[in-house]
Design a protein around this nucleic acid. Structure first.
Length: 489
RNA sequence: GGCGGCAUAGCCAAGUGGCUAAGGCAGCGGUCUGCAAAACCGUUAUUCCCCGGUUCAAGUCCGGGUGCCGCCUCCA
């Protein structure tokens, strides 16, 4: 079986055939650096992080380019409001973006170019488009003439005539067609500018991606990605620019991730219903956020809520509990073998399950990166492991345990999950929950100590009352022969 | 107004025309436990929004309806 990818342009799953055997070039539209990133940005980042991780897992050499747009109306606006330079603004948000990505466990792309580093290339591209009759100038502004590009609309599946009929478009007398877009904009007083053949100006929004993708990946590359809101006009315009200039197709596969919603509405800046990545990561482990997103297919919308994150948190807890079980068995150094000599058979069964997991994982991910199905298989395996590794009949050799842990980490690494030490994960999770609920650790532990002595005196009623009162605050106790541990529900 | 997507259990969710409709969360019964927790076992959709059609066979394809959402303006 081979990898199949849903292509926005054809609206079909297509077999993935890279341009160059064994290599993949991906370009993903990154952020405009004018504000902190929210969970919607996190989803896009996680989706393409998993896609690149998976392609690498399958043996491809991946060049992953994700840009920063660091010159734009919103940045200029923010800079003038704060009386700062645009570089200071963009640098700040690029830095915060990078911190967020690191916290989310998103791998750094191969290249992260910035628009302002490629102004020369943009000027050259605009000049080419003018030469080819695809662009025209009016008062120092340069516009792209969409009617001159016959394929305009092919990505988003719309026709200019249809769009003009509906029309919620700004009135701009300078444009020949309302869907013509700005390639180069004459700078007003106080705005940043670069010298160009058309006077001092700055680039239009879509230009940087055409230039930087070409620069790092060539005229035609394998995968172009982004959020689904970029399909039109951003990616449509990129195609018009790049293909208009080169005469070659821009990308072979167009991949777009679905939105994060809040109460069934798109999470967005303008609606004001967004949660920043940093706010959420104060409340949940990054892998919880990743699991929440990956339990749905990347093209489906996901509805963001506290309930949904808590469900994902329970799921992560399940994964880490099993990892901890394996860890503990390994640390105990006990060869859990059966004197009857059946152990090797049990080991074989276990390794068979692991191989089965690996195969099913690949089958699911090959089908348009179906992480939801892949995670289902992971849970199947967890249930099998819990059944065979815990309880009185449990047995597994050290090497089988070793192999189990390795396989879980191998698959987890593709998804960006299971990367923490189980003890660390659990401790951090508990700390977060304690803060969230305003609980006092010392008080909880004092109650547990009281209960312990009550239990030693077999004062069951008192012990149970303490358990109940802690449970009411979400503190769940677990008795072991030597101690009582606790977690937060 | 134009174009497009989605509708599967209490909730989330996978499902590539054909064996018993994945998986997670929650619930219930059981095993274990002083009682619990975790884990395991069992259970929870005679049916996939509604109506028609194609087919030997449809959650899956086609047509119509209803509802929700997105893009057409900055947007991941």
């Amino acid at each position: 079986m081979s990898l199949r990818i849903f292509n926005t342009q054809t609206k079909k799953k297509e077999e993935f055939l890279p341009i160059q055997e064994g290599k993949v070039g991906i370009y993903v539209c990154g952020i405009t650096a004018y504000d902190v990133c929210h969970v919607g940005h996190a989803r896009s980042a996680v989706v393409f992080d998993v896609i690149t991780r998976y392609l690498r897992y399958r043996g491809y050499e991946v060049t992953y380019v994700k840009n920063f747009t660091d010159v734009d109306d919103k940045i200029i606006e923010k800079a003038s409001r704060e009386r700062k330079g645009i570089t200071e603004i963009s640098e700040r948000y690029i830095r915060e973006h990078n911190e967020d990505m690191e916290a989310l466990g998103v791998a750094v792309p191969t290249a992260t170019p910035r628009a302002t580093e490629h102004i020369d290339g943009m000027i050259r591209l605009v000049a080419t488009l003018i030469e080819k009759g695809l662009a025209y100038g009016v008062d120092g502004d340069i516009y792209y003439a969409v009617e001159k590009f016959p394929e305009y609309g092919k990505l988003s599946g719309r026709r200019l005539e249809d769009m003009l009929a509906g029309a919620r478009i700004d009135v701009n007398d300078k444009k020949r067609n309302p869907y013509d877009f700005t390639l180069w904009k004459a700078s007003k007083e106080g705005e940043p500018w670069w010298e160009s053949p058309w006077g001092r100006g700055r680039p239009g929004w879509h230009l940087e991606c055409s230039v930087m993708s070409q620069r790092y990946l060539g005229d035609t590359f394998d995968i172009h990605g982004g959020g689904e809101d970029l399909v039109f006009p951003h990616h449509e315009n990129e195609i018009a620019q790049s293909e208009g200039a080169s005469g070659k197709p821009l990308a072979r596969y167009w991949v777009h991730n679905g939105f994060v919603r809040v109460n069934s509405e798109k999470m967005s800046k303008s609606l004001g219903n967004f949660f920043t990545i940093r706010d959420i990561l104060e409340q949940y482990h990054p892998e919880v956020l990743r699991l929440f997103m990956m339990q749905s297919h990347y093209r489906s919308p996901v509805d963001f809520s506290d309930v949904a994150l808590n469900e994902a948190r329970q799921g992560m807890d399940r994964f880490y509990s099993t990892l901890k079980t394996i860890r503990d068995l390994r640390a105990a150094g006990v060869e859990r073998t059966d004197p009857s000599g059946e152990s090797s058979e049990k080991d074989r069964e276990l390794t068979g399950q692991l191989q089965n997991l690996r195969e099913r994982f690949i089958e699911a991910m090959d089908d348009d990166f179906n992480t939801a199905r892949a995670i289902g298989y992971l849970f199947d395996t967890i249930r099998f492991l819990n059944a065979s590794l815990t309880g009185k009949k449990a047995e597994a050799s050290a090497s089988a345990l070793d192999q189990t842990e390795k396989t879980l980490h191998e698959i987890g690494a593709v998804l960006g999950l299971l990367l923490a030490e189980p003890d660390d994960y659990m401790r951090l999770d508990r700390d977060r929950e304690v803060v969230k609920r305003g609980l006092a650790v010392a008080e909880i532990e004092a109650s547990i100590a009281d209960r312990w002595s009550a239990r030693e005196k077999k004062e069951w009623q008192k012990a149970d009352e303490i358990r109940k009162s802690l449970a009411a605050r979400g503190v769940i106790l677990k008795d072991t022969p030597t101690a009582t541990t606790w977690t937060i529900a």
